[in-house]
């Protein structure tokens, strides 16, 4: 199955590429907007700063390419900050507009727990074919200071000083706040589900 991985400099592209190949993806790693606009299946990675990641997408005109592909029914999976980029707005240092493919806003954790959250956390209320074969309360690996909360398109949530959205689905647009490429068997299963089913 052909998968187009966006080669963002604000991302851990190599790890995700390796995991996707491991689950059978025929991978194209690209920064070319046209290739992205025409893709059947896109993975949007991201780590670190939402603002830097979004700015890069805009400069490269990849934001438009992604929206174009999404409107044509392309499947898309956002990972970590790539997941956050799907939303309307992030409140990382003031409000920044995201891609607007999923309704909702991304905010900083406001509990008493240390941020970023680093490590494994159990994910519950799994409601999507993306989680097929993955048991309720399976741990996934997270590194994040920001998250969406109770958005309408939520398909999984987790607890970190309060409940937050661990994954979303809007039609064929998916986002996961955790790192499937670092989440052992369960993470690989999720990527396989995306690559082979959605």
């Amino acid at each position: 199955m052909e998968v187009t991985l966006i080669d963002s400099p604000v991302a851990n592209v190599a790890n995700i590429a390796r995991a996707l190949r491991h689950v059978g993806a025929d991978l194209r790693i690209t920064r070319d907007p046209q290739t992205i606009a025409d893709a059947d299946k896109i993975v949007l990675p991201g780590v670190g700063s939402f603002i830097a990641a979004m700015q890069w997408l805009r400069e490269q005109r990849i934001d438009e390419a992604i929206r174009h592909a999404a409107s044509n029914g392309t499947s898309l999976l956002g990972i970590c900050v790539g997941h956050q980029l799907l939303f309307d707005i992030s409140h990382e240092m003031g409000a920044t507009a995201g891609l607007g493919l999923v309704r909702g806003e991304v905010r900083k954790f406001n509990g008493s727990l240390p941020v970023p959250q680093i490590g494994w956390n159990r994910v519950v209320v799994l409601r999507s074919s993306l989680f097929e074969g993955i048991a309720e309360a399976t741990p996934f690996y997270f590194v994040n200071s920001y998250a969406a909360t109770s958005v309408p398109s939520e398909i999984a949530r987790a607890e970190y000083g309060g409940t937050f959205t661990a994954a979303v689905q809007n039609g064929k647009i998916f986002g996961v706040q955790f790192h499937p490429e670092k989440s052992s068997e369960a993470g690989l299963r999720l990527l396989r589900n995306f690559v082979q089913w959605t």
């Binding site: 490590g119 494994w120 956390n121 159990r122 519950v124 209320v125 309720e136 309360a137 741990p139 949530r157 987790a158 607890e159 970190y160």
Partner: peptide
Amino acid sequence: LSLTEAMARARTPNSIPER
């Protein structure tokens, strides 16, 4: 409260698993 979530939490009250 969602029953699915309640059940998942009851089975694994420590949301941060031991590693």
